[in-house]
Design a protein around this nucleic acid. Structure first.
Lengths: 243, 243
DNA sequence: GAGTGGTCTAGACCACTCA
DNA sequence: GAGTGGTCTAGACCACTCA
C-alpha cells in the first residue's frame, strides 16, 4: 500500500496523476512497458476505479500513456518524425509518402553561442555539440538543420558514425546517450534566405524559407536539444483546426 | 422524459454527446445560454450523473460548452480573434498588446472562381461576395485579406456600412446574417510576394510573406467563409507544443 | 477462462454562486 | 439556503486479448 504525498488540498485524481507522471519522468517504467492495472492501482492507493481512471485518462490525453483494451496501459514512446510530416508534404511524383533522406555535413564540439546557451539553459561558452545536416527528397534538399546539444549529456555522439545509424536522431540519443526526448516546443516564421542556407538548400539567395526553431526536453523538463531549421517554402504547408 | 435516438450500438455517453451537439448545432440554445443542469439531464434521459458528466466533459473539451461551478453549463460563443493573436505578435514599441485596425478596400458581388467554389462547396460561378481588406498596426499594414462568402447567406452585408461595425467580422455575420462560425481550418505556407499584395502591404516585390488560408464552418459543418491572407513575414511567428 | 480496459450505475459529500 | 458543478465511492457487467 502506497501513499500519495503532495499537497493534500489537491483532488485525489490530480495527486495520482502527478505521482504517475513523476514515475514516468524518472524512468520507473521504460517506454513500451505496462504500468500496473487499474485494479492494482486502486487497491495500492486505496482509490475507487473511477478516480484511478480519471488520473490515467489525463495521462493518456497528454500522450504519456496509451491504453490497449484487454492488454493493459503502456508508457508511450514519443514519435517525433510525425512533426516533420505535419509541416512538410513529402510526396513523390507518384503521390506516395516518403521518408526524407539525411546527409550530415558536420558534427563538432564548440562553445555555446549566447542564443544557444540561453535556449538550453547553459552558461555562456558551455561546451556543446553542433550537428549540421540537410534533409533531401528525391535527391533535392528541402530542409537545412543546425542541431545543438549539451556536451555533458551527448559526448558519446562524437565517437560514433552517425551516417550509418539512420535519419532519426532521437532513437540515437536514447541508444548511445540514454537521453529520452519527451516534449518539444516549436516556433515558426518566414524569411528571405541568406547565402549560407541558400547554398545548403541549393536555391537562389533571397528565396522565401520557413525557419523552425525547436526546443526538445526530457520528462524532467530539462532542455536536451535546440534546433534551427531552414526549409524550402515550396515544400512547406502547415494545417490547424481551430475549436 | 426524452429518448436518445441514434445507433444503439454506441455507448450512452456518446449518444448523449451527439444529441446535445445536435441541439447546439440547430440553435436549440443560443450562445451564452445555459443548457439543463446535470441533474436535469440525468433524470430526463434516465442516465447516471457519471454518464452525463462524460458526455458534457467531451463537449467542454471540444469548446462547445463552458462550465461555471455553482452557476451552470453554458453554450460557448467562439472567440476567433485569438487565432490572429496566435499567429502574429502585436506589440507596440512599449511592448503592449494591441488590436489591429482594419481598412476595407472593397466589398462586391462576384461569380465564384473555381477555387473558391470548391472550398465553399458551391457550384462554379455561384454568386459570392468578396471583401478585400488590410489589417494595420500603428498605421503599418501587415496582413492583406481576401474574404469570400456565399451570397445566399450573406447578402445583407452589401447593404450595411462595414467600416462602422468594427474590425471583427464574425460578430457582424451573426448580427446581420444570423450565421454563427463554429469551427475553422487553417493552413499556412510561405511565398515571395506578388505585385498586388506587395502594394497592399507596402513592401518590396518578392519579399517573403506567409499565406494563410482559412475555411470557417457553422455548427452543422456547412462552409460559411473562405479566406486567403497574405502576411508580412517580419511580424509573423507561430508556436506549437508537441506532446 | 483469467485478466485487462470500457461503460455505467446510484448514489454521497464538497465548493461555489446568488438571491 | 437552494441550486449548481466538482470529486469520489464501490461496485456491476461488457468487450477484448491471449495462452
Amino acid at each position: 500500500m502506497h501513499a500519495l504525498s503532495k499537497d493534500t488540498r489537491l483532488p485525489l485524481y490530480q495527486r495520482l496523476h502527478d505521482h504517475l507522471a513523476q514515475q514516468i519522468a524518472t524512468n520507473h517504467w521504460r517506454p513500451g512497458e505496462a504500468i500496473p492495472t487499474e485494479a492494482a492501482l486502486s487497491t495500492e492507493y486505496r482509490l475507487s476505479t473511477g478516480t484511478v481512471r480519471k488520473a490515467v485518462d489525463a495521462l493518456v490525453n497528454e500522450g504519456l500513456l496509451e491504453r490497449q483494451q484487454g492488454r493493459g496501459t503502456f508508457v508511450r514512446r514519443p514519435q517525433f518524425q510525425s512533426s516533420l510530416f505535419r509541416f512538410f508534404r513529402f510526396q513523390t511524383a507518384a503521390g506516395e509518402r516518403q521518408i526524407p533522406e539525411s546527409r550530415i555535413f558536420s558534427i563538432e564540439p564548440l562553445s555555446a553561442p549566447l542564443e544557444v546557451a540561453q535556449a538550453l539553459g547553459l552558461s555562456a561558452d558551455a561546451p556543446v555539440i553542433r550537428i549540421i545536416r540537410v534533409r533531401l527528397l528525391d535527391g533535392q534538399p528541402f530542409l537545412a538543420e543546425e542541431i545543438w546539444l549539451p556536451s555533458a549529456r551527448f559526448r558519446p555522439l562524437l565517437d560514433i558514425n552517425l551516417a550509418v545509424e539512420g535519419p532519426l536522431l532521437y532513437p540515437i540519443y536514447e541508444k548511445f546517450c540514454g537521453q529520452v526526448v519527451a516534449y518539444a516546443e516549436e516556433s515558426l516564421t518566414a524569411q528571405s534566405v541568406d547565402d549560407v542556407h541558400a547554398q545548403l538548400l541549393q536555391i537562389p539567395v533571397s528565396s522565401p524559407v520557413v525557419v523552425i526553431e525547436r526546443l526538445a526536453r526530457d520528462y524532467a523538463d530539462t532542455p536536451l536539444e535546440w534546433r534551427r531549421s531552414h526549409g524550402h517554402a515550396k515544400f512547406f504547408r502547415y494545417s490547424v483546426d481551430i475549436r
